[in-house]
Structures are given as structure tokens and as C-alpha cells.
Amino acid sequence: MHACSDSTCSDSACTDSLDDPLTDFDPRHYTFDGAEKHVFVSGRGPAVVVLAEMPGISPHVARFARWVRQAGFSVYLPSLFGVDGAWPLAEEGLAVLRRACISAEFHALAGRGASPVTAWLRALARQALAECGGPGVGAVGMCFTGNFALSMMLEPAVLAAVLAQPSLPLDDAGAVESSAEELAAIRRRLEREGLCVLAYRFEGDRHCRAERFSAYRESLGERFVGQVLPDSAANTDPPPFFRDVVASPHSVLTAHLIDATGEPTLRARDEVLAFLRQRLTAARPADKEFTA
């Protein structure tokens, strides 16, 4: 454990002790359409693709992936940005965010449609289904990658999508990253197959505001199941990136989750695991609704 109790400590030896070595994951490389990415894989059972929030696969993201693994799933954790396993420091995390915003793989601003990386992620889902079997694959997106999980619903292999505080586009609080055409195609699939999309945000989140959930509801109708948690439910001592850069309750399943019985964030985690279990491990009538 971290020897220093001061969360503002910037000593490299001090922060390095908080990094997660990810040694319980199998590091693999997957190439689709000529693009190779590093993916951490672990577990047994139907596959769930867990998409890290900014600034990367942090110890809290890895903790959530382990919870998914313990629930009986194979976890696929692709490295999309940042330093894998690193404790989220403020200055370093902000640099990762800035690089991602100008990367051709991501569409951080409004009007550009879904990020190109989502095509690669759909291919990963197809591969994960081939490797793990089962009825289909789950996808959990967070923050910068929140809407990526929705875009993955264009892939028939993906049966369950969870959007945790979807934060793109960064410059329009009432917009959705997906184009109108993509949203219409996803809604048709959700209605045809009796599926829904689960989403979470904190009430006072500066980066995923009420306007965004309203836009999702308008686009997806009753197939969008949005949950809003009170700000009082958030962990008040998150890592420096979330304290200083994010600067509001934000990460429902990771940095702002309080791992204690009765906490709203822990109930949200359990709802997500139940949702994945219902969609991926049990026979389900086509018109059955999920109720969180």
C-alpha cells in the first residue's frame, strides 16, 4: 500500500507504489484492419469488453474489471490511451486527455460522429465471442469511452451495453457522440431484439450533464435506462486527476465508487453485473425488459 497518506504527494516512488502491475491479466495483441492494440484478458465465461475512462487503465478501472471477472465473465480490457496500470496523476492525466482529443482515432468534439476506434472495438467483440462462446458479448464504456459501448451495439455479437458517465462530445453538453443515423440504427436493433442500454451519471457531474441523458432518451426512447446518483454518494478522496482535473463527482464505477455495503455506487456496480449476467448467461425472452 501507499506509504504516504497525503493524496497530493508527487514523489515518484510514492505514486509508483499505487500503480497496478496487472499481472493477473494475460497481455495479448489483436490486429484488426491493420491496427494492432494491446488487450489485457482474464477470466472464464462470456466475454465483456471493459473500456477504460481517462486517463487510461487505472487501478480503479482494473478493480472494476476484476469484479466483472469474479462475476463469471472473461474480461477484455483494451489499452486505448495512457499508461497501463498507472495511478491517475493530474498533470500526466491531462496530457493524455489532450493527446486523445487530437488523435484521429477519437472524435472528442460535436458534429463528427462516432469515434473511428469503435470499428476496431466491434471487431474485438466478434473475436471475443469466437474465443469465449456464449450468447454474446457485453461492453462497458466509461467517461471518454462511454458512448463507445453504445456504438458497439451495431455489432450483432454485442448484447449488453453499459454507458458510465458518457462524456463525449466535450463541447456540447446536450449532444451524443453517435450520428443520427447510427442512433437510429441502434434504436431499431434494440426494439427489434428487446434490448436496452444501461447508463449512469452523478447529478452534479460537470462532464456528463442532465442534457446528455435527455438526448439519449430522445434518441433511444424507453430502451435507454438512465440512472442518476446523488453527488453525496461519490467518494470524496479520489486520485489527483479526478480531484483536480475532473473536479466533480463523475466516475460511478471506479474512482468515485465507495466500496462499502449500502453505498449507492456499490449498488450501481451490482446492477451492472446483474445486467450483464441476465443478458449474457441466461436464456432471455426477446421482449424481456431489464429493471435496475
Rank of each mutant, 00 (worst) to 15 (best):
F81R: 02
F81H: 06
F81Q: 04
F81N: 01
G82R: 01
G82K: 00
G82C: 03
G82T: 02
V83G: 11
V83K: 14
V83F: 11
D84W: 03
D84G: 03
D84T: 06
G85A: 03
G85Y: 02
G85S: 03
A86R: 12
A86V: 02
A86C: 07
W87C: 03
W87Y: 15
W87Q: 07
W87G: 00
W87H: 12
P88R: 00
L89K: 11
L89W: 06
A90K: 06
A90I: 00
A90Q: 02
E91F: 05
E91W: 07
E91M: 09
E91L: 12
E91P: 05
E92P: 04
E92C: 03
G93C: 00
L94R: 13
L94C: 06
L94K: 13
A95S: 10
A95I: 07
A95W: 01
V96Q: 01
V96I: 08
V96L: 00
V96P: 00
L97C: 07
L97A: 14
L97T: 11
L97H: 06
R98L: 11
R98Q: 14
R98F: 08
R99I: 05
R99W: 09
R99S: 13
R99V: 09
A100C: 07
A100E: 04
A100F: 03
C101F: 13
C101N: 14
I102P: 05
I102A: 13
S103M: 06
S103N: 07
S103F: 01
S103E: 04
S103Y: 00
A104E: 14
A104G: 14
A104L: 15
E105W: 14
E105L: 14
E105S: 15
E105F: 11
E105P: 08
E105C: 12
E105K: 15
E105I: 06
F106Q: 06
H107F: 05
H107A: 08
H107P: 04
A108D: 11
A108N: 11
A108I: 10
A108R: 08
A108F: 15
L109A: 14
L109K: 15
L109P: 05
A110Y: 09
A110G: 10
A110E: 12
A110M: 10
A110L: 09
A110W: 08
A110R: 14
G111W: 09
G111D: 10
R112I: 08
R112N: 11
R112A: 14
G113C: 07
G113Y: 03
G113W: 06
A114C: 13
A114D: 13
A114N: 12
A114M: 15
S115H: 05
S115W: 00
S115N: 06
P116N: 10
P116H: 09
P116C: 07
V117H: 09
V117K: 10
V117P: 03
T118L: 08
T118C: 11
T118F: 07
A119T: 15
A119K: 15
A119W: 13
A119P: 09
A119D: 13
W120A: 06
W120F: 13
W120N: 09
W120Q: 11
W120K: 08
L121D: 03
L121M: 10
L121W: 06
R122F: 04
R122W: 08
R122P: 02
R122A: 02
R122Q: 12
A123V: 03
A123K: 15
A123T: 07
L124K: 06
L124W: 04
A125I: 04
A125L: 07
A125C: 10
R126S: 13
R126E: 13
